[in-house]
Each structure stands twice: as structure tokens, then as C-alpha cells.
Computed example of a mutant assay.
Amino acid sequence: MSYVIVSAAAAALLATVASAEPAAPSKSFERDGMTYVYTVSTKGERTMINGRRYPDGKRFSLTVNNGRVSGVSGGMPVSFRVADASSEEIASR
């Protein structure tokens, strides 16, 4: 998955983080022909986003902390600023 798709997906995920509660039920959204199903949990100041994208079923695991997103998506490491993900989402509209 390219950086733009990952950051756009992360921006959509981050939009739901503010309303998340620990052990929240699964949520989902669609982007670029993929469906992302995920859960959001918090531990201290960190927010963890874990799930799978379909139809390929690949896992993703992202941690949001101190204005940065880092983790793994589809077996590829990702790391970027939250502000960059938000900028990509706005630019793609």
C-alpha cells in the first residue's frame, strides 16, 4: 500500500479516535476499494488502532502518540505525523 493510501486511511481512522473508548466495538470505513475494520483502544496517552483491511485480509496495527503515527500496515512499516495524514486527507477531497 502506498504512503498516500496509508496516510489517507490513517486520517480516516484518526477522525474516529476522538470518540473512541477503551475496548470499543469494531468500526469500519471504505477507502480506495478497500474496507478497513478496526478497534481503537487507549493506554495512557497512546491510542492503538488494530484491524484488517479487506478484501486481502492484511492486518494493520498503528499507535498514535505525541502527534505521530507509527506501526505496520500490510507487513510494511509506517511512520508519519498526524498532521501529515490530515493534510493528505484534505488534499484528496
Rank of each mutant, 00 (worst) to 15 (best):
L14F: 00
A15I: 08
T16C: 08
V17L: 13
V17C: 12
A18Q: 12
A18S: 14
A18M: 06
S19V: 09
S19L: 08
S19F: 10
S19N: 12
S19H: 10
A20D: 02
A20R: 00
A20Q: 03
A20P: 04
A20C: 05
A20F: 00
A20I: 02
E21V: 15
E21A: 13
P22A: 06
P22V: 07
P22I: 00
P25R: 10
P25Q: 06
P25T: 03
S26G: 05
S26E: 09
K27D: 01
K27H: 09
S28A: 14
E30N: 06
E30Y: 00
D32N: 12
D32A: 15
D32V: 13
D32Y: 11
G33K: 03
G33E: 02
G33Q: 02
M34C: 12
M34L: 14
T35V: 06
T35L: 13
T35D: 01
T35W: 01
Y36E: 02
Y36F: 10
Y36D: 00
V37I: 15
V37G: 06
V37T: 15
V37S: 15
T39Y: 01
T39R: 10
T39V: 14
V40D: 01
V40P: 01
V40G: 01
T42L: 05
K43G: 14
K43V: 07
G44P: 05
G44L: 06
G44Y: 02
E45A: 13
E45H: 11
E45R: 12
R46M: 11
R46P: 00
T47W: 04
T47G: 03
T47C: 10
M48L: 15
M48D: 06
M48T: 12
M48N: 11
I49P: 04
N50P: 02
N50E: 12
N50H: 11
G51Q: 03
G51E: 00
G51S: 04
G51P: 03
G51M: 04
G51V: 03
G51F: 00
R52A: 08
R52G: 05
R52M: 11
R53W: 03
R53S: 13
Y54T: 07
Y54A: 14
P55T: 01
P55E: 02
P55H: 06
P55R: 00
D56E: 05
D56V: 07
D56L: 14
G57A: 11
K58E: 13
K58Q: 10
K58V: 12
K58Y: 07
R59K: 10
R59D: 09
T63Q: 09
T63K: 08
T63E: 11
T63A: 15
T63D: 11
V64R: 05
V64W: 02
V64H: 00
N65V: 13
N65C: 13
N65Q: 15
